[in-house]
Design a binder for these strands. Structure first.
Lengths: 343, 343
DNA sequence: TTGAAAGCGCTAACAC
DNA sequence: GTGTTAGCGCTTTCAA
């Protein structure tokens, strides 16, 4: 009923070890023999048992993706898709584990619970990539991991990112070139280091253009629709002068801001230009479509998978303090849509 | 370095088998011995190796969730959360596998690729729960599976659902009681059987109230923001008479419809009542918040996990043609928010 | 370039 | 109630 490596070996007239060699693309197999084995594998529809494999070798063909995203923004969506896609391409499987940093001991518990899975590595997107208890436990267990856009501790582990600072700088330039001088900013989660770098890029671009940042127009946000809504709602409720443009640190908040503006009888971009960051799916389909900064999130996570699969990151690699942790920077791109225009 | 069952056994002064018994909550272990073993496990921070376990037993402690949701609606979000949560509670892990039904052979390929994982079962949410090639392959492989809201083939396998028909009926009644007589409907994906049952519930409720369904006001949709937007956009562009309420077969489309209405200078609910279905997270936070029908999606999937973990659904259970496939129906609830009012 | 033997860490089956 | 024995299906030695 269930086909094992022995069945394949018998039918192909070779030893199990030879089949194993073919399976793992090892060298030292006569091309002709390899062909035969491959054919038999096909014929018998043989699928190697991952458990037997994992038990006797150092690899599990399993990658972990740790997430915390209670509001399931478009960002988290892309993260998953990228990981899923590349895992599929490489013959790996993805194990997703949510972790709530606010729950005492949650991180440790999750890491322990996957310890038995012998994951080949784990991927840490924001905000978990800067969650210290989690990092500590992962390192303690000797697991390989790659962080996505941590924005700090750059030499601590492999990471993939975009230049958040430069991207925010470019977005701000875009607003300024459109003719805006009074620009507000809705910040992201304070503990998310990338959020700080976006704000830094904004501030620098303003200063370089000889513009001052009005502190009253810098609002707190948590990267969610509601906090974007709340920030804009609060801003637009005031008596004083208002900015002509609002730079939200991500798309979900920009969407919320558009909604809040509407509540105040204001339309984007006619009455207020609103831009986001990330290029989440919803930014494309909302009304108006949101001008944003595209981050190749899927590609970033796919690269993270690549790093984990690469032999030198595997858990049996051993630390060679020599090499610095690899740091991959992917390109970003301004996506002009209809939520921003001349004031 | 790595703690095995033998280490625990030695330290506790028992045999490995006894440790195994404790691990698996088997009977026939003296309470006192059990205590000792548990303490040693704790002390040594022992984590059973899933591979060894899976290799020698029939269980993998792995559940598969197959999804197809290119637009990552709120529905898919809840599906995942429910599965993740219950798996965590039961000590299982979730392996997520996307399948695109439009790609020739994709289903077969995915099922083959997880064959080596010996999943304890797979969960099939819409629209995959009615995708024949997938079902066929899963059955061929002898895998246990539970479908979510398939709406057809009710005796084919275990399933979890709500009474879509009754729910849509109730929502329509709500609109009618609000005073609406001219009600439009935006349909869901045609191949999604549950979508048809929602429409049926709508039609019956209308008929029962002596109201006619204007076929011009029944628009096609695909359960996405864009198709909801497009449907409403098209409807509102017409010269003729317009409905006073629009029942969208899910929340994402309702959100799109709200957006389209706005494009035409119409506000919900003042100018047009718009309701959805599902109670997706976004329905709560949009402006206006969407009146919708709550489906306990998370609980439904959690129940599906329970079914799969239950011994009698495990892959070593064997088919006993006697028992009918279990069918679990969970309660729904009307959630009145601000997108619907009297005409 | 190939194969034989010895486990990997756990649990099933069977003793005691 | 508890322990012993024998694998699960693969990969790793190491020998040929």
């Amino acid at each position: 009923m269930i086909v094992t490596i022995k069945d394949v070996a018998e039918r192909a007239g070779v030893s199990p070890k030879t089949v194993s060699r073919v399976l793992n693309n090892e060298t030292h197999v006569r091309p002709q023999l390899r062909e035969t084995v491959l054919r038999v594998i096909e014929e018998l529809n043989y699928k190697p048992n991952m458990f037997a494999r994992g038990l006797s070798s150092a690899r599990s063909y399993l990658i972990g993706l740790f997430i915390y995203d209670p509001y399931w923004s478009g960002y988290a969506t892309d993260i998953q898709l990228g990981a899923l896609r590349r895992c599929r391409e490489l013959g790996y499987h993805l194990v997703i584990e949510p972790i709530d940093p606010h729950i005492e001991g949650a991180a440790e518990q999750v890491v322990d619970s996957v310890a038995g899975l012998r994951l080949d590595g784990v991927i840490l997107p924001p905000p978990l990539c800067t969650f210290e208890p989690l990092l500590a436990r992962i390192e303690e267990m000797g697991m390989a991991y790659v962080r996505i856009s941590p924005g700090q501790d750059m030499d601590r582990s492999a990471l993939v990112e975009i230049d958040e600072y430069a991207a925010a700088h470019e977005m701000t330039r875009h607003l300024i070139e459109l003719g805006h001088r009074d620009i507000g900013f809705v910040e992201g989660i304070p503990t998310h280091a990338a959020a700080a770098r976006r704000y830094a890029g904004f501030k620098t671009a303003m200063a370089e253009a000889g513009l001052t940042v009005n502190p009253d127009w810098v609002l707190p946000g948590m990267f969610t629709f509601q906090t974007g809504f709340a920030a804009a709602d609060e801003l637009l409720s005031r008596k004083g002068p208002l900015p002509t443009a609002l730079f939200c640190a991500n798309d979900d908040m920009a969407l919320g801001a558009v909604s809040a503006a509407r509540k105040h009888g204001l339309e984007a971009p006619a009455d207020l230009s609103i831009v986001g960051f990330d290029d989440a799916p919803a930014a494309r389909f909302s009304w108006p479509p949101i001008t944003t900064m595209r981050q190749p999130v899927s590609d970033m996570v796919a690269s993270a998978v690549d790093m984990l699969v690469d032999p030198k990151y595997r858990r049996d690699a051993g630390k060679d303090g020599g090499k610095p942790a690899p740091r991959l920077q992917l390109p970003f791109a301004l996506v002009q849509r209809q939520s921003a225009a001349t004031p």
